[in-house]
């Protein structure tokens, strides 16, 4: 199975240095901002489509909390072709089921998805207002193959007369289109020139 080779894609904690790079990247783009910029940091930088904005977050509020720059940076646009291939979570492979009927029971999902391997974890979250199933489930399998066959066999099938969709929950990240944003020169700087040996 070719896709298994993606199992070693690393998911690491991001650190502040990376954030800074992203921020500089975004700041370098001219932003003529036709809509009032949110005082709170919007990640959609340099976008030129006019947008209907609403809320006090767009207001200048001197009594506001600390600047948020230190926490999340800007950047991250959807200029990509796909979101890459599935990745492994710490203890297994996570599958997302959507279109789950509000009356669905954990047992039924266990039965349906247990056919492809032992379900190690199942989250069937409830709507906080109604108390019924919110409409999705997250399922953990030990192996890639188990998750993959569940997706293959159950995606598009019916559960409680409801069409369900089954897909990976996590993936390796966007595969960028060619010649969109150029890479930050700062990144290149970190690579030291090849050393010549004598």
């Amino acid at each position: 199975m070719a896709a298994v080779t993606n199992a070693d894609v690393e998911v690491v904690d991001f650190d502040l240095d990376d954030d800074d790079l992203m921020d500089e990247d975004a700041a370098a783009e001219p932003s003529p901002a036709p809509a009032p910029a949110s005082r709170l940091r919007s990640a959609i930088a340099g976008d030129d489509a006019p947008r209907k904005t609403k809320g006090r977050g767009f207001r200048d509020d001197p009594n506001s909390s600390a600047p948020r720059e230190s926490r999340f940076g800007a950047g991250g646009r959807n200029d990509f072709d796909s979101l890459g291939s599935p990745i492994r979570s710490i203890e297994g492979w996570i599958v997302l089921v959507t279109g789950v009927d509000e009356e669905a029971q954990e047992d039924d999902l266990h039965n349906a998805f247990g056919e492809f391997g032992q379900v190690k974890n199942l989250h069937l979250n409830l709507d906080r207002r109604t108390g019924f199933v919110k409409g999705y489930a997250l399922i953990e399998y030990e192996n890639f193959e188990q998750a993959q066959s569940a997706i293959k066999e159950l995606d598009g099938t019916e559960l409680y007369n409801h069409k369900i969709n089954v897909d990976w929950a996590f993936c390796s990240g966007p595969v960028k289109r060619r010649n969109t944003r150029k890479r930050s020169p700062l990144r290149a700087r970190t690579r030291s020139p090849p050393r010549t040996r004598h």
Binding site: L83, I87, L96, G135, D167, A169, F170, G173, P174
Partner: peptide, 11 residues
């Protein structure tokens, strides 16, 4: 941080 699939975003 982690990348989620388009299905997660859709949900």
């Amino acid at each position: 941080e982690v990348f989620v699939s388009p299905s997660v975003l859709r949900e």
